[in-house]
């Protein structure tokens, strides 16, 4: 986060967000990322619905994948997966 941020005179009043949350990448907050075992996955999509960030999307074949720009590594997906096909892997 080394870009120059605007000063108080420049920022819009009312503390409105100048960026969409999509522009605010939070992927570097966490220390773990999910890895999916495609052989065990039953394509139930529960991980997609449980993800608080909306970072897990379901591909055309029905398999989940994670967007690491936004995943904070909370591990809720791994906890909720009924067939334990998600492993949280330490990334640092």
């Amino acid at each position: 986060m080394s870009e120059r941020k605007p000063g108080w005179r420049e920022l819009p009043r009312g503390a409105v967000s100048t960026k969409s949350s999509k522009d605010y990448k939070t992927g570097d907050w966490g220390i773990t990322k999910p890895e999916f075992d495609r052989d065990k996955c039953t394509k139930c999509t529960l991980c997609h619905f449980y993800c608080p960030e909306g970072a897990i999307s379901i591909g055309e074949e029905g398999h989940p994948s994670v967007d690491n720009d936004y995943c904070k590594g909370c591990g809720i997906c791994a906890e909720e997966c009924p067939v334990s096909c998600i492993t949280m892997v330490i990334t640092i």
Binding site: P12, G14, S17
Partner: peptide, 11 residues
Amino acid sequence: EVEGHAGKTEF
């Protein structure tokens, strides 16, 4: 007037 993520608008 403020500039939010979707552009300039009334507050």
